[in-house]
Design a protein around this nucleic acid. Structure first.
Lengths: 359, 359
DNA sequence: AAATGTGCTGAATCAACAT
DNA sequence: TATGTTGATTCAGCACATT
């Protein structure tokens, strides 16, 4: 089956998930039902249905049913996810512990739990508890070994005034203009999430063009944010009324021009330049002397791009580590050459070589 | 058996819990092993080694083993707890989901999950995830029907500048003078919690004279805070060395009169707003153009809150400085956007975002 | 005396690629 | 799969030394 990108599928989320091809999506964002009163959606571990919940429900039975439901859709999401893809789930204390446990049991590897601090939460009117002012998101990779997931570290850092983005995010609720209303003027969906939240999730963990799957699409916040940011989406939603709302909503979204989607990139993604290329380019000559940042330690450049410092020879990194008796060293930033303005790190020579490289 | 109030029992926590009488304590505070699953050594950018929690007591064979342990001690705590008593557990994403699930399965009724936002967390040194900047506490009553638990709503409200105390608490780590040191001057316990955290827990959920049980007593932070606040404590701790440390520590604590309790939640500096939050809030779109005060120089907004002006990219401050060839620049006042009333500084957008933020 | 600078540390599931 | 090489990566707060 071809991947139905940029579309909404109306149907039961588990059944529809089963129809999607394995290892086909880059990101899953899921906002599953929080409470246990799911009626027909809830299945016991033996797949029998749970009756409508009343005040005296059998608590264990209900939890077991919720767990079975949770594990079923998470299992399918894991199947559909690419090996280097990641998954987000949002929830509150009513359900998030069960979701987190299920994730771990299914083999997902937790990367972070993220706290959405609501700047304008609903107060606790009875004064019996702390104001419930946050929700929790879990960000997980497909498994322990999955190392090559997308995390746009530098973009996140930039979005936070050049400080690392933390695990707590302060954002307002979805209110005002952004909140979708029905014909009567009341809110169209009870748990519509703010687009700002999805903006950060998508910017952090996907690249332009990636496919984002949302198995509980609702009124399509994930789709709207994805379209805006030049990502594709697949939405699963059971309620045809929500599907219609989401379609209208997403149709109105203007994507950001591709050239405006660029974010701060990581140095790891830069093309690798061996030090030998700097010598080959004539930016340094064999026999030239490099110095440590304070200028006291020195090493001599050799024709093959290795260094010699006394008896020590090897790569710029290895010699840098050895002369400091350090376990490791980034030779590009450690070693300096004498320029007309004093000592400068050889990293500026690497930049010169890179600027002359074909893309 | 009489209740061993204001004492520390050295022994296995589950075995010792079994010896305590049923329905005898008012509060349980538990800081169990987190079951961290760390890989090899972690080096900081300066090549120093992170002192990780690699103690034996944090090692479990599997999730199943951790779950069995968790359910065993939680089961006994529930037995020992008075019907109107409540229980707190602190953890991180490594274990807190399993703890929360166990609590629900054992019949506890969750009242809140509380986020301890660390004001000074350890950074993520490798740039691979969001900075893990919080821990989670769960506050639970003994069962769904247990309504007469203690919650000092007004004291909490008073401690928070007459606003309802929220479910996210911003507190620093336990460092400096407060952190207990061993003979060699290094930390005596790897996971000592700040007294301010216990202070708030105890003030919120106990009355003077109440008995607080801590089954993972460690160096006795719970006991110290309890004594200070005129509550009694029972500590269970396996390691005799920690027991001794805790005894000495608590002996030095002088109880304080209630009227002298510190006022927490004092006014903080204005919350920092990164420019990325302005973009996320939709107040500016990626691709929008910002102008210098005179309108001659321009820069384009990117999705991560960085700016691009020709080849120059970076934060609003950095790009502002570069286009002026100035050493520094306050981007908030330098950059302007086109509003219906002409050019306006982006600082007015920051004010909008800030007006929606809690401290 | 006051200001400034240096070094250390905190519950951390912390790299990616080529051979 | 295992091993070796390249080279990317940190924030707040406190203690203590220096100016």
């Amino acid at each position: 089956m071809a991947l139905p990108a940029d579309s909404i599928i109306c149907g039961d989320c588990i059944e529809e998930l089963k129809k999607l091809p394995a290892k086909s999506v880059d990101l899953v964002f899921a906002d599953p039902p929080y409470n246990l009163q799911l009626g027909g959606d809830l299945l016991r571990p033996d797949n029998s249905k749970v009756d409508a919940v009343d005040d005296d429900w059998d608590q264990f039975e209900s939890f077991a049913a919720y767990d079975a439901f949770t594990r079923a859709w998470l299992f399918e999401c894991r199947r559909v996810l690419k090996d280097e893809g990641t998954l987000w789930v949002i929830g509150s204390y009513h359900n998030i512990f069960r979701v987190g446990t299920a994730l771990q049991d299914l083999g997902f590897w937790l990367l972070n739990d993220i706290i959405w601090r609501k700047s304008n939460p609903m107060p606790n009117f009875k004064g019996t508890r702390f104001t419930n002012a946050h929700e929790t998101l879990i960000w997980a990779a497909k498994g322990k070994g999955a190392r090559r997931y997308t995390f746009n570290y530098d973009a996140m850092k930039m979005a936070n005034d050049e400080l690392q983005m933390r695990s707590d995010w302060t954002l307002p609720l979805c209110t005002g203009e952004e909140r979708l209303k029905d014909e009567t003027g009341s809110k169209a969906h009870p748990t519509q999430k703010p687009e700002a939240l999805l903006h950060r999730v998508i910017l952090a963990s996907t690249k332009p063009g990636d496919v984002i799957l949302d198995p509980f699409f609702g009124t399509g916040t994930t789709g709207a944010a994805a379209k805006k940011l030049g990502r594709r989406f697949i939405g699963l939603e059971r309620d045809p009324a929500y599907v219609e709302l989401a379609k209208t909503r997403i149709a109105r979204v203007t994507p950001i021009a591709e050239k405006d989607l660029e974010v701060t990139g990581s140095k790891r993604a830069e093309p690798r330049v061996p030090f030998g290329a700097v010598v080959e380019a004539g930016l340094l000559r064999p026999g030239d002397v490099l110095y440590c940042p304070k200028g006291k330690l020195a090493a001599k450049v050799r024709p093959d791009g290795s260094l010699a410092s006394g008896d020590l020879t090897g790569s710029i990194h290895k010699v840098g580590a050895m002369v400091q008796s350090a376990p490791a060293c980034n030779g590009w930033t450690y070693w300096h050459f004498k320029s007309d303005k004093g000592l400068a790190p050889i990293d500026v020579l690497r930049a010169k070589v890179r600027s002359q490289m074909p893309a």
